[in-house]
Design a protein around this nucleic acid. Sequence first.
DNA 1: TTGTGTTTTACGACCTCC
DNA 2: GGAGGTCGTAAAACACAA
Length: 221
Amino acid sequence: MDNQQLFGSSYVDAPFFAANGTAQRESQPKARRRRRKAARCGGGDGNGGEMDGGGDPKKRRLTDEQAEMLELSFREERKLETGRKVYLAAELGLDPKQVAVWFQNRRARHKSKTLEQEFTRLKHAHDADILHKCHLQNEVLRLKERLRATEEEVQRLRSAAGSHGASGDGGDAAGAVSVCGGSPGSSFSTGTWQQHLGFSGANELGTDDDLMMCVPDCFFA
DNA sequence: TTGTGTTTTACGACCTCC
DNA sequence: GGAGGTCGTAAAACACAA
């Protein structure tokens, strides 16, 4: 919107370097190339922050007000074009580089937070899917048990019928038993439904570790 | 205090776009 | 080629328990 309104004359020249006295590490074994540029030392507030002659200012926390203004600006627009950067820097008494860095870091934080939220959302969805799968597998187990009981009952009835009316076509009786025993043509064949459902022996619930995740929760909870 | 974990500021390297 | 972006990381600033 209108930054002129947002940041009108709210600039406060903050005591950035209040902590100047803290001892900077005299030994910088791996100090590398850090803070070579003294360019920003003149950043508008005049307290250059020179440290033990080295010219390296300490890191300066932004004041609450500065951070708040930057936050407002960030919410309006996450990208920072040159004009806005210069304007914000002037309004807040910061170096334009500081403003640019703040926006970079702010974008990084925003991205990190967004990723974290997305991860949480996906995890919840995944957990729900696992639970649903578990329920379906339980249902399959129940149906399997019913089918097994039915097959046993059918076999029992056929055996009883065979023992009573043994005369005549005894060969058919033998065939009937074989049907129950797994004839490829029988709709009650365990082998057949296993094939249709894609189940077989110990692998009927799948071979992966999904079962390991699922079964304890569903069966023992 | 002080040790430790977290947040914030700053930088360099590299990439993309105009 | 310069400006501004992301990414990874260092280090100061801060919070806080022991």
